[in-house]
Amino acid sequence: MGLLSYIVRKTGIYLLTFFVAVTLNWAIPRLMPGDPIGVLLSRFATLPESSEVVYSYFMRSFGFDRPLWEQYLDFWRALFNGDLGVSIYMYPQKVEDIVLQALPYDLVLIVPAVVVSWIIGNWLGAVAATSRRLDNLLMPLFYFLTSSPYFWMAIVLAWLLTVVFPLFPSSGAYSPGMVPSLSTAFIIDFIKHWTLPFLSLLLVMLGGWAIGMRNLIIYELESNYSRYMEALGAGRRLILSYAFRNAMLPQITGLALQIGLAVAGAITTEIVFSYPGLGFLMLQAIQNQDYFLMQGAFLVIVVMVLVANFVIDLIYAAIDPRIRSAYAGEA
């Protein structure tokens, strides 16, 4: 399998996943017992200018006794026009606008949390693998961290660092009086608000990476190349560095699987800190039965995860000689 066909194949899978996600998004309200669509549409009937709303492609995709396939096609058409419907809760704002405003807050939380936890976690895991004493000390902690629900970790941090030791603000992305700008004051304020949700994600994810790395290294140290190197008198440090390098590859693949969980973690963590990302938005949507907003947020989350997966695949391809060598063989 060459690099190009590797990328084509991955892209194919992700496009297909996107297709399935959109179809699910369209189908779920129709598959549910009761009459959710009726409820949904009736909520618009009470709003002013409802006739105008009804004429968007998106609204048309929700029925009016037309054949299902027409509704489905309209759903896709709406999507290609960047039309995700209108929010009830924040009427008359468009869902796509609301969701895109929230997205940066997720990115600024999730990306650093994943990257930093990956680096520190792998490092700590490697340290644990090399020392039996540290292993016995650190592993229970790692297991505890990875077992904690993200939002509970958020609650604990909020209690410790906003109530017991009031060092950080407890809600929002910045102080109410602030206007977003690139001024130092705003940036400091923003970072203060960002720290606790970031730390919650970081701590929970850290445990998982550390456990993974520790197990992988112990596994690699028992491999044949490790034995060979040891038989040829290589020092422990050298063998460890080889094991570490080989353990990195599965950890990069693990990154792809972790993204989905990180997003789930961010959704609930944001709620604890009223951090205005997609998770907080979803809560608003749930509480206000704003289905379009919820589904819009779902789609954006899926796209975000797909893009992240694709990037990780590319990184993997660039790093793993097995994929690279296959590419060289084809060229």
Binding site: N224, Y225, R227, A231, L232, G233, A234, R245, N246
Partner: peptide, 30 residues
């Protein structure tokens, strides 16, 4: 004595070399 005086060609030569290092690097390290 390892390597310099007593050396071994191991049983599983097929995976005796770490897959993520080039051969020259393995030699230099050893």
């Amino acid at each position: 004595v390892r390597y310099r005086h007593i050396s071994i060609i191991p049983q599983y030569a097929m995976d005796s070399l770490s897959p993520t290092r080039k051969v020259y690097k393995i030699i230099k390290d050893l």
